[in-house]
Design a protein around this nucleic acid. Structure first.
Lengths: 187, 187
DNA sequence: TTCATTTTTTATCATTTGTAAAATAAATTG
DNA sequence: CAATTTATTTTACAAATGATAAAAAATGAA
């Protein structure tokens, strides 16, 4: 997926501003399983996914929770590093070999201060992510685990194909055993 | 709480830009129990809380989920109206008599297009809300209902005092009966 | 205050989900 | 290909939470 397409999907930008963004990114590739961002560090880069699929997860000593999947067109950001310049709470792991567009946070922040269109583009991005996250929080309470799985199956069948079920279960807020039970009932 | 203080808490703004915002708001008051925003409608205003406390909830025919509390200093926004100009999914109810600063969305959008500092201020606001929501989503999975209650008690003791437990339970993702059980264990 | 209403707690039982361990299945490696 | 590792499903049992009903307590209005 072209970077230009990714930009436009977030929010329409004037050609001049788009060019500034395009000139700021650099293509990089990483192998499957690569650990792109690590919790506890202040990340200085963000990425956009040209090709591949990744997961963000948070860990405690005895648990690990996948709370986000990213695929073609989406932005990979350690939110707390990006927003507050503090160590992030998430690890990001590549679930497939990935082609990414890399962008230095500092450079983006500079564009935010300099170009009002890019500032509003960045605002739109955060707002759209906010809505998605808020809706997930609400749906988690309204719907049973089984309903949430069926919905994922309906709306993102590709994720079920491309991602192992342990991660899907974690994303849905249940254990792998529970997900297995749910899948058995649907047969 | 002064509107100027609320603005600064989100992100520092130059005096000029701050004045533009201040000139755009209007103080309003509503009684306890007032339904400020309604789900299914496109809201054209946002509010900042000078005094009082409110809750945002989403409803299905047989259920109602409180997913957000707002108190002094916070913004009341129907997210989907604000971001996508589509009907919102939340109702907002005043849990106390409130003094609010009212701002027309259209006017704010206009300031976003015109003043880069305000655009970045709006970006910061969305980003901060995004982090809070994402952290709640993660915590809901890491911690038991009991731990989540203790944490709320620790970090927001005022909410427990000012809000009835049915709403707190819903916010924590459990039933009121469950919350009552948890409270009984802590005695 | 007293009465009516709302909120919170308590008790019981049903259901869901989690934990642990074993059995299968699938993928990877030499 | 066989051997090994990794992922998924199945089973049995335990723990947490939900649903419902009813009692107790708190709140608010007259």
């Amino acid at each position: 997926m072209e970077f230009s397409t990714i930009i436009d999907a977030i929010h329409q930008l004037p050609e001049q501003s788009k060019l500034k963004l395009i000139r700021s990114v650099q293509e990089v590739t990483f192998p499957k399983g690569y650990s792109l961002l690590k919790a506890g560090t202040v990340e200085t880069r963000i990425y956009f996914i040209k090709k591949g699929i990744v997961r963000a997860y948070a860990s405690t000593p005895d648990n690990e929770i996948t709370f986000w999947f990213g695929k073609e067109g989406q932005a990979i950001i350690s939110m707390r590093s990006y927003v507050e310049e503090l160590p992030g709470y998430e690890d990001i792991e590549l679930l497939e070999a990935c082609e990414l567009y890399e962008l230095k946070t500092e450079q983006l922040q500079h564009l935010f201060e300099e170009d009002i269109h890019i500032a509003n583009w960045g605002r739109k991005f955060a707002e759209q992510e906010l809505i998605k996250t808020e809706e997930r929080l609400i749906q988690r309470q309204f719907r049973t685990a089984s309903e949430r799985y069926k919905e994922l199956l309906l709306n993102h069948p590709d994720l079920i194909q491309r991602i192992q079920l342990g991660h899907i279960a974690s994303y849905l807020g249940i254990t792998q055993v529970s997900l297995s039970r749910i899948r058995a009932e649907l047969k």
